[in-house]
Design a protein around this nucleic acid. Structure first.
Length: 689
DNA sequence: CTGGGCATCT
DNA sequence: AGATGCC
């Protein structure tokens, strides 16, 4: 990634199978505090995750074969089903054929999986902040510090042994002495797996090794609910065992194809292939990385993941080919997305719409997307206003983006729609005394962390009982401060926040600095498509026009401007407010209403360049930036809702709070918004249940 | 009859 | 914005 600086002098090639030796022998270039010679990395991989979550929710499912279904695919299944030949990513037809009694559970709504997933991550983080998520069911953890500390305080009188399996070894006790750190790591892994089981109710595998690549590869060697340690002397064994290059994490389908074109098929082939030739194909950094991976060498740090940088909802389908259906699907997706965003608490600055068009050839890789900034007042509605209002106001933006990609006057055929919020900004202000991040970390985390392991030091990481400071309460309610802070952005990419004694340990590649909100170039989504004429409005039935323009549809609220009140019922927009029903595994059907719309509509950017210096055209009616075409596509009730919004907003324009026409470089009003703040909520993801 | 997310890099 | 990779 960013090892570009020092790749030149490397002698990786020569170091072959013994990365540890190579690293420790790096006395050659002892520039500064480098990454530790030997790290201890854990990789956790929950067993058939979605299926497990469903079995936790409904224990009766444990005894029957279940398959988690998304569309026509069984994305995963429990072990009962696997015994009968069902596998991951098997088509529904094949699965039913293998196992006619297979019980299907719809897994298209990821809510519960996401919640459980974050509970696990948070639990791990309570032991050590260096936790990196990979998907919903995997976590890497760098426990080097913890191990070193324990090693230091343990008088070595310890009779080390490994917990669980040791790759390619059958007498686990013998070699423990030679690898005390990994042996300790195996005990920590065992304890953490037990904690996950007792506190979250999930089982999983763990791999213990000296880097992420190896930890991940070894974790899968003994499959359900077991763990395996990989010793340095067996690195070449595990790499050589891989059946194909694409089994190497980091080498995907496309890369495998390119390597194959070079005549490389096995991991060995890649190990022995001249680096120079590889460089020609992939460029320096990538070539070196690929070669290293083949050798089992991976310096990439465990980078704390923190809160997600984007939230999205998508749905795939056979065919959507009318604007009306697009609109309805977007409303449905947005309703869910806005609710999630609200729970998150951060305010999205960017909205993106992605589509996939049908094409017989190469069906899978044609996604197109367009994005636009989210005006502040709408962003605020998302986080602290009515989610219905937020959806109503976002829909026009979505439709606008849609029209940038699709000419709806000709036929089109979509097979997927995705809506996404990104550039998430913390709201919240201030930094306070007691609750401030600083005080939290200095006084709690640090000592707590120390205690965690010292307390169990005696008999070596014994039972989990109350060994660590985090109890259920922490997870369920108090998570807030700690997890948020620890996970949250600003500090996130920097060294482990918590003051562990050897910061340089991580070599912190701050590659991705927190995007500076001030900098976001918001490419104004300007430009009215040539085909959007205001004429559309006139084509509407007269009565509808009147209806829309009539003040009767708007509420004249006291100018005190409280958040808007819906004039019309938009409750249908909220699909599932609380997915909480712990009941059956019903396949929720996508309900739907559908006021077919005819009528009118708004466009986009409030901050348009030259045109209209007033957001609103005179009089009542539309904001000046309204795109009639888009507006016309909205259902009447949504149109009314919008009209109502506009009415209410109008007076507010005079207040300084609203952005003025001159957008200059924007930024101005931003600094107040979020800069130094901290609190955000990551912990929403760790919500209890 | 191949999900629904996420992330990073260019 | 798109490609790619991972689950």
């Amino acid at each position: 990634m960013d090892d570009s600086e020092e790749e030149d002098e490397t002698e990786w090639e020569n170091s072959f199978v013994d990365p540890v030796a190579a690293a420790s022998g790096s006395s050659l270039n002892k520039t500064s505090a480098q990454a530790p010679a030997h790290r201890v990395i854990l990789h956790f991989d929950l067993d058939c995750f979605y299926a497990q979550v469903e079995m936790v929710r409904n224990p009766a499912l444990r005894e029957v074969p279940i398959g988690i279904q998304q569309k026509y695919i069984i994305v995963t299944c429990n072990y009962v089903a696997r015994e009968q030949g069902v596998t991951k990513l098997m088509s529904l037809t094949d699965a039913k054929e293998k196992c006619p009694q297979l019980v299907l559970v719809n897994g298209e709504d990821l809510t519960h999986y996401r919640e459980m997933s974050y509970k696990v991550t948070e639990l791990l983080m309570s032991y050590c902040p260096l936790v990196e998520r990979l998907g919903f069911d995997e976590n890497f953890m760098d426990i080097t510090e913890m191990v070193e500390r324990k090693l230091a305080e343990t008088p070595e009188s310890n009779n080390f042994s490994f917990k669980g399996h040791v790759y390619n070894h059958f007498s686990a006790d013998v070699e423990a002495h030679d690898h005390p750190r990994l042996a300790l790591g195996s005990h920590i892994a065992a304890e953490l797996r037990e904690a996950i089981h007792s506190k979250v109710g999930l089982t999983g595998c763990a791999g213990i090794a000296s880097n992420k690549l190896l930890a991940k590869l070894v974790s899968g060697t003994f499959k359900p609910n077991q763990q395996t340690t990989l010793l340095p002397e067996n690195v070449s064994d595990i790499m050589g065992c891989l059946s194909s290059l694409c089994k190497v994490p980091g080498v995907g389908y496309q890369t495998t194809k390119r390597l194959q074109a070079l005549g490389l098929v096995s991991v060995k082939d890649l190990q022995l292939f001249p680096l120079n030739d590889l460089v020609r194909e992939f460029g320096g950094p990538t070539a070196q990385r690929l070669k290293n991976l083949a050798l089992g060498v991976d310096d990439s740090p465990v980078t704390p993941t923190g809160a997600p940088q984007s939230l999205s909802e998508e749905d795939s389908f056979k065919k959507i080919s009318s604007t009306k259906d697009v609109l309805e699907k977007i409303q449905e997706l947005l309703s869910s997305l806005v609710e999630r965003m609200q729970k998150d608490g951060r305010q999205p600055q960017t909205f993106r719409l992605t589509i996939r068009r049908f094409s017989a050839t190469n069906k899978w890789f044609n996604r197109e997307s367009r994005q636009c900034p989210i005006p502040n007042h709408i962003g605020q509605k998302i986080t602290s206003g009515s989610s219905d209002d937020a959806v109503v106001q976002l829909v026009p933006f979505a439709m606008k983006l849609f029209h940038k990609m699709v000419d709806s006057s000709t036929t089109f055929h979509l097979t997927l729609i995705n809506v996404c919020f990104s550039n998430l900004q913390i709201r919240g202000t201030a930094v306070g005394g007691k609750g401030s991040i600083t005080s939290f970390f200095t006084q709690r985390t640090s000592p707590g962390k120390t205690q965690i392991f010292s307390s169990q030091s005696q008999d070596g990481l014994s039972q989990s009982g109350d060994s660590h400071c985090m109890d259920h309460q922490f997870i369920t309610q108090h998570a807030s401060q700690s997890s948020e802070a620890a996970l949250h952005g600003v500090e996130r990419k920097q060294s482990p926040v918590v003051a562990v004694k050897d910061p340089p340990l991580q070599k912190v590649s701050c590659s991705r600095a927190r995007s500076d909100p001030d900098k976001t170039d918001n490419m104004v989504t300007h430009q009215l498509p040539p085909n959007v004429d205001p004429e559309v409005f006139r084509l509407l039935p007269e009565d509808i026009q009147e209806e829309l323009l009539s003040p009767a549809y708007t509420i004249s609220l006291p100018s005190t401007s409280v958040s808007s009140v819906s004039v019309v019922d938009v409750s249908h927009l909220t699909k599932n407010k609380y997915p909480q029903s712990s009941t059956d595994s019903d396949l929720t059907t996508a309900n739907h209403q559908s006021p077919a719309g005819t009528t009118v509509f708004p466009g986009e950017n409030i901050m348009e360049e030259g045109r209209l210096s007033f957001p609103w055209s005179s009089d009542c009616e539309f904001p000046g930036n309204v795109d009639p075409k888009v507006f016309s596509e909205l259902p009447p009730d949504v149109q009314r809702e919008l009209m109502s919004e506009w009415k209410q907003q109008k007076p507010a324009l005079k207040t300084p709070s609203c952005r003025k026409p001159g957008r200059s470089l924007m930024t101005k009003d931003r600094k107040a918004a979020g800069k130094g703040s901290q609190a955000n909520n990551l912990f929403k993801y760790f919500k209890p249940s």
